[in-house]
């Protein structure tokens, strides 16, 4: 059965596609961006358009429309959204594109108004509802994926174990220490201690905003494990307020060597390994 919508798509396919691409171009260059729409995106939009046309030709307004999530259309749409999200364009642009196609089709359908187009309009509405939904879900998925990736790489970045001098390691802790990070910190540190045969490890807490019981417990476990490998731990960088809070909480780092600043900690570490920093002049004489 050839409904007005199917006829419209059949007779004016190229013209509709051109109009849509034109519109896509104006959305694209909306934010002071005068580049033309990349060729790949054009091709992608073309195949999405073709898929939608095929979909409409194959179904009827009376069908219960459900978008096949494994179908070609869903796939193309997903790829397009992924590309768009990667290059950082907003969700409103991508969804705006889908809505503009719906608008285009319904306006044209209305203009023809040769037969009763209400059923077709409703149908169009249903199809584009699920397309918009899919676009939105795909967009959020991509973004969430990006965020997870970023926080993972941030995790990687934020726990470096530095070799300060021969057999002296420095572990500067920055930011929030939760269970996952604590485990990672311990793993990295133990590995480094074994590799460098470290005698002293300086644990600098200057960048840790709050030391509560949970953070303290993680630290204690890390320190205990490090000691089993034969390294001595010097803890530095606890602020005066932090120290006061810790004692009020009733947390004791009783047998851990502490120094107020990283500088004092380094001096202590050198002392423990029987070394010192001396002026160049002195050594010459």
């Amino acid at each position: 059965m050839a409904t007005p919508l199917i006829k419209l798509l059949h007779e004016h396919r190229e013209e509709l596609l051109d109009a849509w691409l034109h519109h896509a171009q104006s959305i694209w260059s909306g934010n002071g961006n005068y580049e033309s729409l990349p060729q790949e995106s054009r091709l992608r939009l073309r195949s999405i358009f073709d898929d939608i046309a095929t979909l409409i030709a194959q179904t009827t307004p009376d069908d219960d429309f459900e978008l096949n999530p494994e179908g070609a259309l869903a796939n193309h749409l997903h790829q397009f959204v992924t590309e768009q999200a990667r290059i950082g364009s907003g969700a409103n642009k991508t969804i705006g594109l889908m809505l503009s196609l719906k608008h285009l089709l319904s306006t044209r359908l209305f203009d023809r108004s040769e037969a009763d187009a209400v059923a077709d309009l409703m149908w169009l509405e249903r199809i584009f509802d699920s397309l918009t939904q899919l676009t939105f879900t795909a967009f959020v998925d991509v973004r969430e994926h990006l965020i997870t990736q970023q926080s993972l790489s941030l995790l990687e970045l934020s726990t470096p174990v530095l070799r300060l001098w021969s057999r002296i390691l420095l572990l500067p802790l920055v930011g929030v220490i939760d269970t996952i990070r604590a485990r990672q910190i311990t793993e990295r540190l133990l590995e480094a201690i074994a590799r460098h045969e470290a005698r002293v490890t300086i644990l600098d807490l200057t960048g840790v905003p709050v030391i509560d019981t949970s953070v303290a417990q993680h630290l204690m476990k890390t320190i205990d494990a490090a000691r089993l490998l034969g390294t001595q731990v010097v803890m530095t960088g606890i602020s005066p307020e932090g120290a006061q809070t810790l004692t009020k909480l009733g947390i004791r780092f009783g047998d851990v060597l502490c120094r107020a600043t990283l500088r004092a900690g380094i001096a202590e570490a050198l002392l423990l390994t029987g070394q010192r920093i001396s002026p160049v002049e002195e050594r010459r004489s």
Partner: peptide, 27 residues
């Protein structure tokens, strides 16, 4: 923790009190 700390700061409380409350909220 940040909200607690900010409020302390707004009321003109010192760093020791800020840390004290932030830690309590954290617990």
């Amino acid at each position: 923790r940040r909200v607690a700390r900010d409020l302390c700061e707004r009321l003109g409380l010192g760093k020791a009190d800020q840390t004290r409350l932030a830690t309590a909220v954290s617990e």
